[in-house]
Amino acid sequence: MAGLIIALDQLSKYAITHTFMLGDYLTVTPFFDLVLAHNTGAAFSLFADQAGWQRAFFISTALIASAIIIYLLRRESGSVLFKLALSLILGGALGNLIDRILNGYVVDFLSFHIQQHYWPAFNVADSAITIGALLLVWDSLKKPRKP
């Protein structure tokens, strides 16, 4: 699953970067645009305005998180839902890590909005991380509580 997420993420980023110039957008629906944005920060462009330390920090964080996730996936315990969630998070983390290593920024291109109120642009990797995190919460809620 992680490999599929990485492939979809990188193929979609390749397509958008070879079709759009930085800042270009295409209105698809009244609430959705395709854009080309570069994010040197974290989610919601947090720390994007910093002097550059964030690149090494986010690369290190992604590598450490990926190693922990791989360790957890290799353990025999854990539900299928738990392992699916971790695989989605791993694929998303590695998809964005590839961008940071190759470009120094993450390519974002999905932009949702209500009139002039825009959600920050994101990508396939970000979507996988978010869905994986939600599945982890769901999995934890499904487990019986110990007294």
Rank of each mutant, 00 (worst) to 15 (best):
F44H: 08
T40D: 02
Y14T: 05
M21N: 15
A133L: 11
W119T: 09
I129Y: 05
T29W: 08
D99E: 02
Y14K: 06
Q115R: 13
I59V: 15
F47S: 03
S66T: 09
I70L: 15
I68N: 08
L81V: 11
S127M: 00
T130A: 13
G92K: 13
A42F: 00
L102Y: 12
L72C: 07
G104V: 07
L134Q: 07
L136C: 10
G52R: 03
R55S: 07
L26D: 07
L4P: 06
D108F: 03
L4G: 14
K143W: 05
S79H: 03
A128D: 11
F32E: 11
S45W: 11
L8V: 13
R74T: 14
A48C: 02
D126A: 04
A67K: 14
F58C: 04
S111W: 07
F44K: 05
W53F: 15
I114A: 12
D24L: 09
A67W: 14
P144S: 03
L11F: 14
Q116C: 03
M21E: 15
D139W: 01
Q115H: 10
S79F: 03
S127D: 08
I64P: 10
V124C: 03
I69G: 06
V137Q: 06
A56N: 14
A56W: 14
S111D: 15
N103V: 00
F47Q: 04
H113D: 01
G104P: 00
L97S: 06
L94H: 01
A56S: 15
F44D: 05
I59W: 00
A85R: 02
W53I: 01
D33H: 14
A2I: 13
T40Y: 11
T17A: 11
I114Q: 08
S45M: 05
I129M: 12
H18I: 02
D49H: 10
G91V: 01
L63D: 13
F44Q: 03
V106H: 03
G52P: 01
S45P: 00
S79V: 01
V137C: 04
Y105K: 01
L34D: 13
L73R: 01
G23K: 09
Q10H: 08
G23Y: 10
T17Y: 02
F20D: 12
W138G: 08
A48P: 04
L73T: 10
A133I: 09
D9E: 04
R74H: 15
I131T: 12
Y25W: 15
L63Y: 10
G104S: 06
L22H: 11
F112I: 10
L11M: 14
L81F: 02
Q10D: 03
F20P: 00
Y25I: 10
L90D: 07
G23A: 06
S45T: 08
V28H: 04
L63A: 10
K13G: 09
I5M: 10
N96F: 03
F31G: 02
L22T: 09
A43F: 05
G91K: 06
Q116E: 15
F47R: 04
D24N: 14
I70P: 02
F58T: 07
A62W: 11
L136K: 11
I89G: 13
Y71L: 07
A2R: 05
A133N: 08
Q115P: 04
Q10G: 01
T29A: 14
G41S: 05
I59K: 06
L110C: 06
L135S: 04
H38N: 10
T19D: 01
Q10F: 06
Q10R: 09
I70F: 12
V124S: 02
